[in-house]
């Protein structure tokens, strides 16, 4: 474990807490893409299949459970909770996210570290996570002004993988046999997808104005 990875995990956890706060405090999921939340639930379920078989550390197991439970709870909230469900705008959240699932799984069948069930699902989860934010970014562009908590949620979610890139550089420089190409390349693509959001987020922070993504 290094400071970059710990900061990355804490930023990821913070993004989830901010989203939970938004949904709980406002009893609304306006501006939140249900499809991105569903994709993240699939990402965690596919990535942590070894939750009960490979024990790495208490921290690792605890965080995996938190990520799986929170992503499922958020999807449940948006799909089932009567107050929150009413605020879901399905006419704006129209990204065909099942195509992202299919493409990621297909890619994982060809590009993986080992042709085993766990490794293919792990690669699938890495590729899917890289594109999981797309429905949310499309929704933000369509829904005009973005409320603060939703903007902060997306910012922290994008920042966490950026910190992981620093972690991979650090590990590459300090650990002789560290190679994690699938996660590294995918992580760079994932962070790059946030580039324009980060730009407009910075502008809104600098001008102390409302975050607005151009349509």
């Amino acid at each position: 474990m290094n400071i970059f990875r710990l900061a990355g995990d804490m930023t990821h956890l913070l993004s989830i807490l901010v989203l939970l706060l938004k949904i709980y405090a406002t009893k609304s999921c306006s501006g939140v893409s249900r499809k991105t939340q569903e994709l993240y639930a699939i990402v965690f379920l596919a990535r942590y299949l070894d939750l009960f078989t490979d024990f790495i550390s208490v921290y690792n197991t605890f965080m995996k459970i938190v990520f799986i439970a929170s992503s499922l709870a958020i999807v449940w909230c948006i799909r089932v909770h009567p107050m929150v469900k009413r605020s879901y705008d399905k006419d704006l959240d129209t990204f065909r996210h099942y195509l992202l699932v299919a493409a990621s799984f297909l890619l994982a069948l060809f590009l993986h570290e080992k042709f085993t069930f766990l490794e293919i699902f792990w690669a699938f989860s890495i590729y899917l996570e890289a594109v999981a934010i797309l429905p949310q970014l499309v929704l933000l562009q369509r829904s005009g002004n973005v409320d603060n908590l939703t903007g902060q949620y997306v910012f922290f979610l994008g920042a966490y993988r950026g910190l992981y890139i620093l972690n991979w550089i650090y590990r590459y420089l300090t650990e002789p046999r560290f190679t994690r190409w699938i996660a590294c390349v995918s992580g760079v693509v994932q962070t790059a997808l946030y580039a324009d959001f980060f730009y407009y987020y910075f502008i809104s922070w600098k001008n102390n104005s409302k975050l607005k993504l151009p349509a």
Partner: peptide
């Protein structure tokens, strides 16, 4: 040692 195939990252 062998390639660390164990996924120690989240």
């Amino acid at each position: 040692g062998p390639l660390s195939s164990t996924k120690d990252e989240l």
